[in-house]
Each structure stands twice: as C-alpha cells, then as structure tokens.
Amino acid sequence: MMMNIEVLSRETIKPSSPTPQHLRNLRLSLLDQLSVRFYVPIIFFYDHMRIILKKSLGECLSRYYPLAGTIRDDISVDCNDAGAEYIEARVGCKLSEAIKKSDFELLKPLLPFDPYGNVIGRREALVGVKFNVFDCGGVGIGMCVSHRIADAASVSAFVNAWATMSRGGGSSTEADDPIFDAALLFPPIDIVPAGFKLEKRASSSSCVGVLNKYSPTCVQVVSALIWNTFMTTIRSKPKPGNECVAVHAVNLRDKMVPPLPNHFFGNLLQIGVAATTVDGDKDLGALASLIGNGVREINDEYVRRLKMEDDHVDSSKKERDRFLKGEKEVFASSSWCRFPRYEVDFGWGKPVGKRVGIEAWVNLSEQDMAILQHDLDLLSFVSSVY
C-alpha cells in the first residue's frame, strides 16, 4: 500500500557562502564520465526530530561546492551555486509502518525525485533532499546524489559532514576537507560512449586451486549465493547466454599506494569481474572465491595500468555491445557494509531500523523474482524473504 504524502514546501538550498571564482570550474574525471546516469538514493529514519536541516545543508554545500553546481557537456561541473533541491513533506502513517516496507517502489515517494527517471522539465540538480515528517513525529530523510559526480564513499563523506554540522560541530579540520582532484589522476576525454570496461580476470577454471588459500568475506559469500540463484533463473529461459559475469563495485581509494583518503571526492571505483558458464552445478565456495579473486585484481598495479590505457573507452563500448546482444548474462552487485550509514547523527541520535545480519536488496524481473523467492538453496541461508 502506497503512503499518503503531502508536500508542504519546495525550495532551493544554496551554499551559505559563494564559491570563489577560481573554483568555479571543476573538471570531471574519466571515471566520472564513464559512470552511470542515475542518482544514489538513500533514506535515513529517526524516531524523533529537533531541528530543520536547511541551514546546515547550506553550510555543507559551501565545502562540497560541486554538488551545488551543474554538469556541462560531460566534461566539467559549473560550480555556480545553483543549489540543492529541498522538499518538506508530511507522511500520513507512522514511522514503524514505513520501516517495515521492503519494496523500494513503496519507499520511493520518500525521495525528492525518482533516482532512475529522466530530468526533462526540471533542472538536473546534483543533490536532492526530502524531509519527511510522520504522524508519530518520526522523520525520514530521503536523499538523491548524482552518481555522475559521486560514488558511495563520496556520498557517505558528504552526509556525515552534513550531520556533523547539524550537531553544531562546525566544519571539520582542514585535513578532512573534500579533495576534488580526481581529474588529475584520470583526465577526462572529449567524447564518451556509455558503458564500462570488463576484463575476464577470474574464471572457474583458474580459481579452483586457490579455494583453500583465500577466505572470502561475508559480502562475497552473500553475493555468491545470490549469483548462484541468479544463474538458476537464467537456465529457465529459452535461450540463455553461455557465460555469466558477476561484477562488483570496488573502491579504488584503499587499493592505491599510497591509499587515498575517504574524503577524496568523485567516482573512484572500478569493477571487479568474475566469470563462469551458466550450465552445470555451482559450488558456493568456488563462486565466492571467484568474486574474491576478481576484487583482489583491483590493486595498485591495476590502477597504474588503468591510467596508461588508451583503449579503455573503446573496450567499454565493445563489452556493452556484447551485453546488448545477449552473449553474456550479467549479475551486478555492490555493498554499503563498510560505510558508516547507521552512524549518521544529525543531532537526534543514530538512524533506526537497522537489521541484524546482511540485508540484501535484489532487483529482478517479476518472473525471475518468483524463481528466486522459491529457491530452496537460497531459502536455507536467509531468515526472511520479503
């Protein structure tokens, strides 16, 4: 059942101080240019509220000034202080009812706009916030941050900086100020086709010998479990692809030597790749090790090669074309487990609604989802499917 939401106000929050003229143009990096064209959506729930967040948002946008700007021609951000969209709304239900909802479509009205929709008819704001007040006095803060300029680590840094300012902490030390130098590491290009580059870096034949030498992480095991079930849905199709590729987003900051700080802003990520054939029985440990090997291939040596490659964009286009032709089946995953999502305190305590264990959100077609929800191997590992 959809929630009844009444929008009370809409406005634009601009940086509290103007961006200096010499910072008005920020070049996008190549990895920004190759990033997906949607927003990173996130919702924080709190059981009560004390303050409105507009003032602290303006203060935070002064530090994260590109987020208040406008992207120009996929090359740069015009840091023109256009501002962030800010909406206040009243929700006609209790907070506890919203927290129980696990269908993203039911929670989407708590966001300022559709993170996957087009921007026709409105300015393409890089940040949107919706401050939702429930009947019980609880609050849901829905946010959308453009993935064209920020990855999950950058979104997390921005939100936590905003929360610190909301608590009256003021600006952080200069050492924690965001760094906008990604274009120096990965210079942009003039023409960018959509897509990303995949290399076959881990395969089932090359991985069997290392099963006892590498212990996968919890996230890799959960990803392998869902990947295995995903291949079950593929085999039910009339003409499945022969190969299934699992891709996992990898943060480059701690893979480089020396590592980059978490407040190094932008899309500093690449894709760890694992591949196997669709047919035949799959051992969960082998699949988890495949994913782990693909992730471990993203290291400092890989980043150095990435900086020197001239054919990165052309390879991206070729891989995209193979996916469109159905030659490969693709299972994509990412994890927020290492980001302090449940530490975001705006001044009224930490978010509520945290669940025990790893919560996995899976997006499939309705037909494939029906197969997944009745897969006995999957159900033997989960506490609930909703």
Rank of each mutant, 00 (worst) to 15 (best):
M3S: 11
E6Q: 08
E6L: 03
R10H: 13
T12D: 09
K14M: 13
S17R: 06
T19W: 04
R24M: 05
L26P: 01
S29H: 07
S29L: 08
D32G: 02
Q33E: 01
V36G: 00
V36Y: 01
I43K: 03
F45K: 00
H48T: 15
S56L: 13
E59F: 11
S62Y: 07
L67V: 14
L67A: 14
V77N: 11
N80T: 08
E85I: 14
E88I: 02
V91N: 08
E97A: 10
E97Q: 14
K100G: 14
K101W: 09
S102M: 06
S102F: 03
S102P: 00
E105S: 10
L106Y: 05
L107G: 07
P109Y: 10
P112K: 00
F113W: 10
P115M: 06
N118P: 04
V119G: 06
I120Q: 14
R122T: 13
E124V: 09
V127G: 14
G128V: 10
V129I: 15
V133G: 00
F134R: 08
I141E: 06
M143S: 11
S146E: 08
A157R: 07
T164Q: 12
S171L: 15
D176S: 12
D176H: 06
D177V: 04
P178Q: 04
F180W: 01
A182N: 07
A182G: 04
A183H: 14
L184I: 14
G195I: 01
F196M: 04
K197E: 13
L198Y: 05
K200M: 06
A202I: 04
A202F: 02
S203P: 02
S206E: 11
C207E: 00
V210G: 01
N212T: 04
P216Y: 00
C218E: 12
V219A: 13
V219C: 04
N228G: 08
T229I: 12
F230Y: 13
M231F: 05
T233K: 09
R235T: 14
S236T: 12
S236N: 12
A246H: 09
N251P: 14
L252T: 09
M256K: 09
L260E: 11
L260S: 10
N262C: 09
F265T: 07
L269W: 12
I271C: 13
A274C: 03
D281W: 04
K282S: 04
L284K: 05
G285C: 09
G285M: 05
A286R: 06
A286H: 08
L287W: 04
A288I: 05
A288F: 02
L290S: 02
G292N: 07
D300Q: 08
D300L: 04
R304D: 11
R305C: 15
D310I: 08
D311S: 13
H312G: 10
D314E: 13
S315F: 02
K317Q: 06
R322Q: 09
L324V: 09
L324N: 11
E327V: 07
V330S: 01
F331M: 05
S334T: 09
R341C: 02
Y342R: 00
K354F: 01
Q367S: 14
M369T: 11
M369N: 10
Q373K: 15
H374K: 15
D375M: 08
L376S: 15
